[in-house]
Simulated scan of single mutants.
Amino acid sequence: MKFAYEDLSEDQFEKLIVLLCQRLLGMSVKGFAKGPDGGRDAKFVGTAELHPSKAAPWIGTVVVQAKHTNGYNRHFGESDFFSPKSQDTVIGKEIPRIAKLHNGKQLDHYMLFANRRLAGNADQNITQHISKECNLPEGSIYLCGLEQLELYMKQFPDVPSLAGLDPVDSPLIVSPDELAIVVEAIASHDTDLSSVLDMPPSERTSYEEKNALNNMTPEYSIALRKRYLKDTAQIRGFLAAPENLEILKSYEATAEEFQMKIISKRKDFQNFDVVMEYLLDLLFQRDPILRQKQHKRLTRAVLFYMYWNCDIGEVVDA
């Protein structure tokens, strides 16, 4: 079974890795609480049970780190994760911490798990870089990406269950795929959004009532209406055109997914302003089409249209 690791929270992913390391290293693997952990998510002291092998196990202090991303199809070799010329990366920020622990004799071996794809050249380059910068033997460094993580989940099928990988406990995570189709299609349409008259779609619940029901602040609702109301007629007309039936289906699939996820996680957010901005941040992070400069405003406009058109958020019961 494949798991959507990108849909987990950081805490869930870290718990999964700690439980996995208890199988690979030993039951005394200890996870750490949130806070200034000095570069450690978990630690093991002793002789490893299975890693790297039963015949030649690691001996000493093993420091484990789990690096989670909500992004799709991310890689170890991406510039935000590793660049030998920059310290402003995930690996670059960890190098001083690893070196400090090693120099203080608090680290003999280092393991890093990430829900990213790990190519052979990236494995070699990152391992060599950590080894050089931290004066740590390459044989004492282990990187684990998605491919190997999937193999471990098959080898230790009880680990996901013990980690409580239950969708009920997952964060508010939505897929950007269908929305990207809608945004890209509207963006390529000939009509200029800015030229459309201010003609809103038919409302099932008035904007004011909807804002009160969803606890959207007046300041945020006014700003949304001022910036994106003029776009709603264009979006509605585009989706209603017979030749755009497939785009309409993508829009409806997106709105349905967003609404059900919002309902299930609404209690986690103080007001609907935060829900909207959280979704936008997530969408821009997860999809390269939506985060393009020319598509960001349109993405916001489509999300506003969903809210204005009562496709997401609470409404007055009929």
Rank of each mutant, 00 (worst) to 15 (best):
Y110V: 00
R227E: 05
Q148A: 10
V183Y: 02
E133I: 01
S131Y: 06
T205L: 08
V174A: 05
I186Y: 14
D108N: 12
T205V: 10
L136M: 07
N215C: 07
A180W: 03
Q148K: 13
K132A: 11
I181L: 09
H189W: 09
I235V: 07
L101K: 05
Y207F: 15
I181P: 03
P200G: 01
L162V: 00
D231G: 07
V183A: 00
I235Y: 11
L118S: 03
A119R: 06
V182W: 07
L197N: 13
Y152K: 06
N215D: 09
G104T: 12
V183T: 03
P176W: 02
P171T: 01
S140V: 06
E138G: 00
A119Y: 08
I95S: 11
L118D: 00
N215H: 12
L118C: 00
D108F: 09
N121T: 13
G139D: 08
M199A: 13
D123H: 09
I173R: 07
I235F: 13
E219V: 14
N214E: 03
S175H: 12
L224C: 13
Q124F: 14
E150Q: 09
S188A: 15
N115D: 02
S194A: 07
D177W: 11
A233C: 07
T127M: 08
Q124V: 12
L136P: 02
A114G: 03
L172W: 14
T217S: 15
P218I: 04
L197R: 14
N121P: 04
R204G: 01
L224F: 14
E208I: 03
G145K: 03
D231A: 11
S188W: 13
S195Q: 08
A122N: 13
T127K: 12
R117Y: 12
S131C: 05
S221T: 15
I173K: 06
S206W: 13
E184I: 06
T232V: 02
Y220H: 12
L193G: 08
